[in-house]
């Protein structure tokens, strides 16, 4: 095993996901199996290889820039229309600062 339950709980906290206790064990088993596959990467010689973070083509450096012109953003009520809770033109969340 590469991982422990403690590792899974740590990563879950980083990912902002609540897991039930019984889910932790399943996640541990699955992640460990998949990471076992991923360990194959360690043995590959990548000396001097530039990391590829994006598919790139030959083009002018400004080829993907658009004209710098004003555009209307979504209107306030449109932007709020899908909010679970909103009010006074804002998204509402549980109180963070106690008075």
């Amino acid at each position: 095993m590469r991982l422990t339950e403690k590792d899974v709980r740590y990563v879950a906290a980083l990912a902002n996901i609540t897991f039930a206790d019984e889910e932790i064990g399943v996640m541990l088993h699955d992640l460990d199996g998949i990471l076992g596959q991923m360990d194959a990467l360690a043995g590959i010689d990548t000396e001097g290889v530039e990391p590829m973070s994006q598919v790139l083509f030959d083009a002018a450096e400004n080829a993907t820039l658009r004209a710098d012109v004003e555009r209307m953003p979504l209107e306030n009520e449109v932007a709020l229309a899908n909010a679970p809770i909103s009010g006074n033109g804002y998204f509402k969340v549980p109180r963070v600062i106690e008075r």
Binding site: L41, I44, V49, P51, M52
Partner: peptide, 12 residues
């Protein structure tokens, strides 16, 4: 070990 390495292998 994982993400940067994978991006290099992606280039290969």
């Amino acid at each position: 070990a994982y993400y940067l390495k994978a991006q290099k292998v992606r280039a290969l």
